[in-house]
Design a protein around this nucleic acid. Structure first.
Length: 461
RNA sequence: GGCGCCAUAGCCAAGCGGUAAGGCAGAGGACUGCAAAUCCUUCAUCCCCGGUCCGAUUCCGGGUGGCGCCUCCA
């Protein structure tokens, strides 16, 4: 598989540190609120990466952190009159609800910053020993960016240029404007931990270095996140980790593009964002997942209600095709798989892999899926061997499984099924008025009946 | 000022040197009691100007128009 590495700005062949295993660290959410669909993109994209690598036979360790201590956490907890821990617990729970609905598999580990403070302190200690960090009199610790020769290598910005644009803060205790906090001395009313520099809490960047190396080792394969994390977050992680170990931190850096609204970046600070939770009230989040995968992950995509509608329609087509194949598997005739059909399945399977191998080109992979279902739609319109349908279903399930869609079945309420049966009786009696009235009733309840050669099918509208 | 991305049909989106995948929407047709689903047909020469090449949407240069990072942010 080839992936675009932000570090080299080229697509590179993925060669894992340990053959057969891929270790991935993805920056997770700060759990002070529900997450918005801009946050959802990396979750979905890198979940898909993980699923794909597993599909290709790799053992994948996927670590995604929860930032559960920082300024936003503290402010929000204060506003709500609860502790930072209570706030974190609440929104971690809410995170899982939305993530589950988006088809995001649970990470191998979801470490929390506050549960790894010891590791963080150890890492900071090492950095001070190695001359990469310094403590101030009042108990802050900063990273000395000038001490790390590679600073700026990920963002492609020389330190001087970065500093030229940096904001100089009032009351600066840092030696250089580009230095950043590793440890912040406790302020009254804030959660704190004991440390060699006094009571305080970790800075934002250090947690990811500490947790990624704790769970994945000094050098791991892929570090992923949104493009806006390239600078300063990931640049700082590199400085911290490589400064401490002297080894390469992550071999590949993957960054997803933004979700825009009206062509402008969606962000909490802009206020033009949509919460996943809000969207879920109106749409099945599976459609949101498909929408996210309909473009290559590095390109920016605009978000709009119309596009979710489009994705929903596409998803419908996929679901219908799957239903058709499942029926064919149930009602199929005896006989062996036509070799030509077996060949066709193989061809599509390979095309899908080729697309995904090319830097996770889900848009192209999706087109393979649609080409496949056109073939199966044609083929299973007439009775075919059960074994053919089973083979097709197996492939379809594999591919949709990689994309994380079509994983669940809609359940149809008993009374709707009864209405459908009643309608079928009416149809047999050629009582079209009665049949149509029942169909309208079913539609009003949010379901649809379709008459197929194998009898009426009821599905969610 | 530094670094970087993007521009393909009504909408979304692949392709990135050999004459434009796929989806949504639309139109016509087949099938259907009528529908729905499905199938068939139909729907673009790829922002502009130069250059390289036998050949460019695809490479190079220059425009124009969008966007991002350099400050918390996926």
């Amino acid at each position: 598989m080839r992936i675009y590495n932000t570090m080299t700005r080229k697509k590179e062949e993925l060669v894992p540190v340990t053959p057969g295993e891929v270790k991935i660290y993805a920056c997770g959410p700060t759990v002070y609120n529900f997450f918005h669909i801009g946050n959802a993109r990396p979750f979905i994209v890198f979940d898909t990466l993980r699923r794909y690598l597993e599909y290709r036979g790799y053992k994948v360790s996927f670590v995604q952190n929860f930032t559960d201590i920082d300024d936003k956490m503290i402010n929000r907890a204060n506003e709500e009159g609860i502790t930072v821990k209570e706030l974190a617990d609440r929104y971690i729970e809410e995170y899982y609800k939305d993530a589950d609905a988006l088809g995001i598999e649970r990470a191998t580990v979801n470490p929390r910053a506050t549960e790894n403070v010891q590791e963080i302190i150890e890492l900071i200690t090492t950095l001070i020993e190695k001359g990469h960090a310094y403590a101030t009199e009042d108990g802050d610790v900063y990273y000395d960016t000038h001490s790390f020769a590679g600073y700026g290598k990920l963002s492609g910005q020389p330190l001087d240029d970065l500093e030229a644009g940096a904001r100089i803060e009032v009351g600066e205790k840092k030696r250089s404007p580009s230095d950043f906090a590793l440890w912040k001395a406790a302020k009254p009313g804030e959660p704190f931990w004991d440390s060699p520099w006094g009571e305080g809490r970790p800075g934002w960047h250090i947690e990811c270095s500490a947790m990624s190396m704790k769970y994945l080792g000094k050098t791991f394969d892929i570090h992923a996140g949104g493009m806006d994390l390239i600078f300063p977050h990931h640049e700082n992680e590199i400085a911290q980790s490589e400064g401490a170990t002297g080894q390469t931190f992550a071999k590949y850096w993957m960054h997803n593009g933004y979700i825009n609204v009206d062509n402008k970046k969606m962000s909490k600070s802009e206020g033009n964002f949509f919460m996943v939770r809000e969207i879920s009230k109106e749409y099945d989040l599976e459609a949101v997942r498909l929408f996210m995968l309909s473009a290559q992950y590095r390109n920016p995509v605009n978000f709009s209600r119309e596009l979710i509608e489009q994705a929903k329609s596409s998803l419908e087509r996929l679901k219908n095709a799957k239903d058709r194949i499942e029926d064919a598997a149930k009602n199929g005739v005896d006989g062996e798989v036509d070799p030509e059909f077996a060949e066709l399945l193989k061809k599509h399977s390979q095309a899908f892999i080729d697309a995904m191998d090319d830097d996770l080109n889900t848009a192209d992979a999706l087109s393979v899926l649609f080409e496949l279902i056109r073939e199966t739609n044609i083929r299973f319109a007439d009775p075919r061997p059960k074994k053919e349908a089973e083979a097709a279903l197996k492939l379809l399930n594999e591919l949709t499984g990689v994309l994380g869609i079509l994983g669940k079945k809609d359940s149809i309420p008993q009374e709707i099924l009864e209405k459908a049966e009643e309608r079928q009786s009416a149809r047999k009696a050629k009582d079209w008025k009665r049949a149509d009235a029942l169909r309208d009733e079913i539609a009003a309840a949010g379901y649809a009946v379709e008459d197929t050669p194998n009898g009426p099918k009821v599905k969610k509208a």
